[in-house]
Write a protein that binds this DNA or RNA. Structure first.
Lengths: 283, 283
DNA sequence: CATTTTATCTCGACA
DNA sequence: TGTCGAGGTAAAATG
C-alpha cells in the first residue's frame, strides 16, 4: 500500500492490498460508515434478472443501511446495485477481494471482484436532516380544495384520495347541477396512461351511480396528443393547471470561463464554470 | 489543508480549503474525471419541483457526462441529483464554495453549499465495458415465438410489437379457430395498469374487427389480486410465464462471523461477513 | 427532436 | 408483510 490516513470522519487508503481493504471494510461496517471504493473491477448480478459487467474502473458505495451501488463514469443510475436491507460480505481468493451483497426477498446476489483498488474510503456520515419537497400532486389537490373555481364555477370538492374498486380517485366532487365529478391530477404533461386511469375510475362510478351522472376531468399542465385524442373519444374533460410552488431560487448571473481564463484569474474571481473537454464518452 | 496526493488515477485532498478544492474541481473537469466530495453541506433544488435539505454529511459525485449526485447515508436513491447533460459551475462566497449544476430543458438548478469538505477525490475513470442483461420482456416474446404452445395449443404468433392506435401490442396472433389474440407481456407480477393496457388494446381491435373476434391474454409470472379481478370482469385471460434467464450464478457457502470472531481469525480465513451495529439509522 | 414505454425501477403508504 | 400507486422517476426505443 502507498499510504493512508485517518483524520476525523474519513479514513482512506491509497493503492491498498486486500488485507488493508478488509480492515477498512470491517471497521467501517461496525461503526456504520459509508464505504467508497475507486476500483478496477468485474461485476456479476443474479436475481430478478441476471447481468455481467466485464472489468473497468468504477466507484463502489456501500451504505450502512445495506444499499450497495456500483457507478460507471456516466449516467445518474448505478450500473449495478442492491437496495437497502441487503447484507454485505466478502471473500479473498489468492489476494483478490470479492465483495458480495445479498438481498433476501426476492433473492438477489451482487458480486464485485476487486481486481485493483486505487483508493478506498470509509466515511462516518452523520446526517439528521430530511428533504423537504414542494410542488407535488398533493399540493395541486390542496390548491383545488382551497379554490374550487379553478375547475369550474360551482364545483364542490368532497373527497380527497377516495379509494374505489380499481384504484384511488385524486378528487371526487359534485358540479353545480349535482353530477359526480372525478378529477385525476397530473403534475406534468398527462399521457395515455393518465386518461386510461381516469376512464377506469369514471367507468367504475358509472357502474355504481348510472351512466349519465358522472363526469371525468383530467387536470394537468398539458396533454400529450395521444392523450387528447383518447380523452375526446371518451367524452372526458381537461383543465389546465400547473402545480404550485412557493418561490423560485434566485439564480445569480456568473462568469463563464475556459480553463486558461480560469487559471489566470483564480485569485481575482469568485465564480466559475469550466467546460468538459469535447472527447466523446461512450460508456 | 492537512494533506493530499496524486498517485495514478486518483487525486485526493484531506480537509482542503476552498482554493484547493477549486483546483481539483477545475483540473478534474478538464480531464473528464469523476469528482467525489465527502462533505458537510446544504442542498437546494428548483425545477420540476423544489426542495431544500439542511446541513448534514453527504457524498457528492460529479461525473464527466454532467450527472450530479448527492447521497445521504441511506437509500439507493440520491437525495438530490441532476441528470446527464447538466453543466456544473461554482462560486466562492467568503471562503465557502457553492457547487451549481444547471439542466437546460426542463430548466432545473441544483446548488450545494459546501460548509466543510472532509475529503475530495478526482478519479480518472476508464471503462469500456457495457452491461449485458438477460431476463427481459423482449426475451419472453422470443420464447413465445419459438414455442407458441406456451400460450396454448394451436396458437400462431404473427406480429411482434405491433403498433395500433393507442399503443403497441407486444404480440398479436391467431388462435386455432382463427380469432385474433392480443398478448400483453409483463416480466414481473402484473398489476391493474397492465390489465388496463391490455383492455385498451383489445377495445381498439374490437372496434376494427368486431366484438366477438378478439381475445386478450396477459402473460406474466403472476397477477396482483386487483389485476385478477379486473381481468375476470373484462373477460380477459391469463397465462403464467416467467422471463427466461440463461443460467444462475452459483453461490458459495460461507462462514458468518461477528467482528471479534473476524478479528481473531483474520489470518486464517478467506471469507467473511460482519454485521452492522444495531444502532438505529433514521435519515 | 418530442413522445411513449420500460425498469433488477425505488419508495412510501396502507391493508 | 404484501400490495398498490407515485416519481424532480431515468433511460431506452420509437416516430
Amino acid at each position: 500500500m502507498d499510504c493512508g490516513g485517518s483524520i476525523g470522519k474519513v479514513n482512506y487508503l491509497v493503492n491498498p492490498k486486500a488485507e488493508d481493504i478488509v480492515e477498512l471494510l470491517a471497521s467501517g461496517i461496525v461503526n456504520d460508515s459509508i464505504l467508497v471504493f475507486f476500483a478496477f473491477c468485474r461485476v456479476r448480478y443474479d436475481g430478478r434478472a441476471k447481468s455481467e459487467l466485464e472489468p473497468g474502473d468504477r466507484i463502489i458505495i456501500i451504505k450502512p443501511d445495506g444499499s450497495f451501488l456500483v457507478h460507471k463514469n456516466t449516467k445518474r443510475e448505478p450500473v449495478n446495485w442492491q437496495p437497502p436491507g441487503s447484507v454485505v460480505s466478502w471473500e479473498v481468493h489468492d489476494g483478490k477481494l470479492v465483495l458480495k451483497s445479498v438481498r433476501k426477498k426476492p433473492r438477489e446476489i451482487l458480486q464485485v471482484e476487486l481486481i485493483k483498488v486505487y483508493h478506498a474510503c470509509s466515511f462516518q456520515c452523520e446526517d439528521y436532516e430530511e428533504l423537504s419537497l414542494t410542488g407535488s400532486e398533493a399540493e395541486m389537490a390542496e390548491l383545488i380544495f382551497e379554490n374550487p373555481s379553478l375547475i369550474e364555477d360551482g364545483f364542490k370538492p368532497l373527497f380527497k384520495e377516495k379509494q374505489i374498486n380499481h384504484g384511488i380517485i385524486d378528487i371526487l366532487g359534485k358540479d353545480k347541477s349535482g353530477r359526480w365529478v372525478v378529477i385525476e391530477l397530473k403534475r406534468r404533461r398527462a399521457d395515455l396512461q393518465a386518461v386510461s386511469q381516469l376512464k377506469r375510475y369514471v367507468e367504475c362510478l358509472k357502474y355504481e351511480y348510472g351512466e349519465g351522472n358522472i363526469r371525468g376531468i383530467l387536470v394537468a399542465p398539458s396533454l400529450t396528443s395521444g392523450a387528447k385524442k383518447l380523452l375526446e373519444e371518451e367524452n372526458l374533460e381537461f383543465r389546465e393547471l400547473k402545480p404550485p410552488k412557493k418561490e423560485r431560487l434566485k439564480e445569480n448571473k456568473q462568469t463563464t470561463l475556459d480553463f486558461y481564463g480560469y487559471a489566470n484569474n483564480l485569485n481575482n474571481l469568485s465564480s466559475f464554470q469550466i467546460h468538459r473537454s469535447d472527447r466523446k464518452i461512450k460508456n
